[in-house]
Simulated assay, not measured.
Amino acid sequence: MTPPQTIADLRTLMNSLPAGDAAARTAAAARQDQLVKPAGSLGRLEEVAIHLAHWQGAEKPALDKVTITIFAGSHGMTKHGVSAFPDEVNAQMFGGFQAGMAAICQLADAFGAPLAAIDCGIDHPTADFTEAPAMTEPEFLAAIAQGFDAISGDEDLVIFGEMGIGNTTAAAAVSAAMLGGEAADWVGAGTGVDAQGLKRKVDVVARGLARHAPRVAEPVEALRRLGGREMAAIFGACLAARLKSVPVLLDGFIVTASVAALGLAAEDGLAHCIAGHASEEPGHRRLLDRLHLDPLLRLNMRLGEGSGAATALGVVKAAVACHSGMATFAEAAVAGKNA
């Protein structure tokens, strides 16, 4: 399966999303009813296990191959002072991922998930979206292809992380364009900007929305004109995962804004995804509500990097361990519920 070569190709793929394996889902749900516990007593853990079964096409889902991929990029609108950190942090943190020094590296090690980092143009910032589209169509498609090619199709579960100074501003702009509301409704502190920095972020998002209206009301155009290369790559990876029936554990605001176009393309566009957590960014919680995604964790995290989703991987592993490892009433010779 090859990445889309044109925007028309992209739209065709988004309109032909596979539905997963209904028979496997039914079998997994039936197994849950037979495990040695009161029905429904494991709550969301049961739902998670059934979800994985549906997309893996197996009554007993596995987590033998879980991958975490970080996509890193740079943003042209950072010249307006939207971040508490300078642009050179992008390259420095990318090196940190490769050297195993970042928080996500520790979480990946803790849960036994291989970690990869992909450079989506750290040395080639997007255009300042207050002046021009962030990406040309060829640039946008090339970034999507980077993410698309990162999914082999044999993964049991994938997690996406990101690095890009200014990308909470891009996520706020993309979310506002796709779902409406004022710039201030979607903008948060990000890396920790002060009150003046917050005002600058709101102003930049508002200017970007005004500059590209009404084109950004269309989700794909919103991502191209207001997003970043790392965001387009995450979108491409999520699309490829859906086409290859690989379940996705979503991270925070930037990742969720990156895949929102897929969720808006069809009512079930993000049906293969589980929201790992709700971040401290107010825009993320608003976005989760609008996309009807119920997060597994609420830990007030706002680091990015895939760290919230990686933390939620512990919950997902618990769900699979119980579902696939527990005995049924018949296997354990335990009397079931009275009729």
Rank of each mutant, 00 (worst) to 15 (best):
Val89Glu: 01
Val89Ser: 04
Val89Ile: 14
Val89Gly: 03
Val89Ala: 07
Asn90Glu: 04
Ala91Asp: 12
Gln92Arg: 15
Gln92Phe: 12
Gln92His: 15
Phe94Lys: 02
Gly95Glu: 14
Gly96Thr: 09
Gln98Asn: 14
Ala99Trp: 03
Ala99Ser: 13
Gly100Leu: 13
Met101Asn: 12
Met101His: 13
Ala102Cys: 12
Cys105Glu: 05
Gln106Ile: 13
Gln106Asp: 13
Leu107Thr: 10
Leu107Tyr: 05
Ala108Thr: 06
Ala108Gly: 08
Asp109Ser: 13
Phe111Pro: 09
Phe111Gln: 15
Phe111Gly: 07
Gly112Cys: 14
Gly112Asn: 14
Pro114Leu: 07
Pro114Lys: 09
Pro114Asn: 06
Leu115Val: 03
Leu115Trp: 05
Ala116Cys: 12
Ala116Val: 11
Ala116Asn: 14
Ala117Pro: 07
Ile118Tyr: 14
Ile118Val: 15
Asp119Cys: 07
Asp119Asn: 10
Cys120Phe: 08
Cys120Val: 11
Cys120Leu: 12
Gly121Trp: 09
Gly121Gln: 10
Asp123Gln: 15
Asp123Ser: 15
His124Tyr: 14
Thr126His: 03
Thr126Asn: 04
Thr126Val: 03
Ala127Leu: 07
Asp128Ile: 05
Asp128Glu: 10
Phe129Pro: 00
Thr130Leu: 02
Glu131Asn: 12
Glu131Ser: 13
Ala132His: 07
Ala132Arg: 08
Ala132Met: 08
Pro133Tyr: 01
Pro133Cys: 08
Ala134Gly: 06
Ala134Val: 01
Ala134Cys: 06
Ala134Tyr: 00
Ala134Pro: 03
Ala134Asn: 00
Met135Val: 00
Met135Gly: 01
Met135Arg: 01
Met135Thr: 00
Thr136Phe: 10
Thr136His: 07
Thr136Leu: 11
Glu137Ala: 14
Pro138Ile: 15
Glu139Met: 11
Glu139Ile: 03
Glu139Thr: 09
Phe140Thr: 00
Phe140Lys: 00
Leu141Val: 04
Ala142Gly: 14
Ala143Ser: 15
Ile144Lys: 00
Ile144His: 01
Ala145Met: 14
Gly147Glu: 04
Phe148Glu: 03
Asp149Phe: 04
Asp149Cys: 09
Asp149Ser: 13
Ala150Met: 03
Ala150Asp: 05
Ile151Trp: 01
Ile151Cys: 03
Ser152Cys: 12
Ser152Gly: 15
Ser152Gln: 15
Ser152Asn: 14
Gly153Met: 03
Asp154Leu: 04
Glu155Thr: 05
Glu155Asp: 08
Glu155Leu: 08
Glu155Pro: 11
Val158Asp: 02
Val158Tyr: 05
Phe160Ser: 08
Phe160Cys: 10
Phe160Glu: 04
Gly161Asp: 05
Gly161Gln: 05
Gly161Phe: 05
Glu162Phe: 08
Met163Gly: 02
Gly164Ser: 09
Ile165Asn: 00
Gly166Lys: 01
Asn167Ser: 10
Asn167Tyr: 07
Asn167Pro: 13
Asn167Ile: 09
Asn167Arg: 04
Thr168Arg: 01
Thr168Phe: 00
Thr169Lys: 01
Thr169Ser: 13
Thr169Val: 10
Ala170Gly: 10
Ala170Lys: 03
Ala170Pro: 11
Ala170Asn: 11
Ala171Glu: 01
Ala172Glu: 05
Ala173Asn: 06
Ala173Glu: 02
Ser175Leu: 01
Ser175Met: 02
Ala176Asn: 04
Ala176Trp: 00
Ala176Cys: 08
Leu179His: 10
Leu179Ser: 06
Leu179Gln: 06
Gly180Lys: 12
Gly180Trp: 12
Gly181Leu: 06
Glu182Trp: 02
Glu182Ile: 06
Glu182Asp: 15
Glu182Cys: 10
